[in-house]
Computed example of a mutant assay.
Amino acid sequence: MSTAHLHAVPEPTDLVELYSEAPLPTRHGLLRVMVFRERGTDKEHVVAVKGDPRGHEGVPVRVHSECLTSEILGSLKCDCREQLEHALDLIGTSERGAVIYLRQEGRGIGLGNKIRAYALQARGADTYEANRALGFGDDLRRYDIAAQMLKQLGSRSIDLITNNPAKIAALEAEGVAVRRRIPSLAKTNPHNIGYLKTKRERTGHLIELAEQKTPA
């Protein structure tokens, strides 16, 4: 993928700027990793790109927020790791696509507060009740940064891999053309079934629940 068009002088209103990029061989195929630095913070957001999305319609894209507990520690409390792996597998078998990895842990409240919320959940609160008890809104994630990163990739429209209608609306509000939604299958286990049902019932996530037995 040629990236000469990505090195223009950023506009003053840009929220992120491209800092570095390199090819990366992965089990999903050869990807190009691009690191964007968020202006005014120390956050570095990542795009993993397959092929060249410039000028194409319906490029498969996952906009994913980091989840250390599932992606690194293997937590069973959510489906974040499975959604990320599903997106990478799908893009790996496509001619082109991208995964945007945003550094906004715990739906935007940060890792420390996420673990505080987990402590409240262990005492019976659901994911939204726990956030509110800590003084946070239901979801503090933002997608204007992802929209700017997507615009630098240059696709004409995307097929968004998500179960979250609010994410589609947020990206469209930032000028991203979302052609269609690609569902992300959520596998259930005894630890995440309540979380998934709560997301579906409270915030309208389009989750198709698939039963999964955990090893004895």
Rank of each mutant, 00 (worst) to 15 (best):
G108C: 05
P10F: 03
L120W: 14
E208I: 07
A169R: 15
D14L: 03
I158P: 08
P12E: 12
G58W: 07
A170H: 05
C78P: 03
R202L: 03
I100E: 02
D89S: 13
G97L: 03
N163G: 00
Q152S: 12
A87Y: 00
I109L: 08
N189F: 05
P190D: 11
V99H: 03
V63C: 00
S94E: 15
I115A: 11
R81C: 12
K77R: 15
I168P: 05
V59R: 00
H191Y: 15
A186W: 03
M1Y: 12
S157D: 05
V47C: 15
G112P: 06
S65T: 04
G74Y: 13
R180H: 05
A133V: 09
H7I: 09
K199P: 09
L102G: 09
H5F: 12
R103D: 14
T162G: 02
T13P: 07
T188C: 02
V33N: 03
L68H: 04
R103A: 10
Q121F: 07
L134Y: 09
N113W: 14
R107Y: 15
A4T: 15
G137C: 01
E174C: 12
I115C: 02
V61A: 08
K43M: 10
R179S: 13
R103W: 01
I109H: 02
C78R: 00
T13Q: 14
I182V: 06
Q148A: 13
A22K: 01
D138Y: 10
G74K: 10
G137A: 11
F136A: 00
R142S: 07
V49T: 08
S94W: 08
R62A: 03
L153I: 06
P190Y: 05
T198E: 05
K114R: 03
T69C: 04
I145S: 10
Q152H: 13
I109F: 04
A177Y: 14
P190V: 08
E82Y: 12
T41F: 11
H45E: 07
E17A: 11
H64Y: 01
G204C: 02
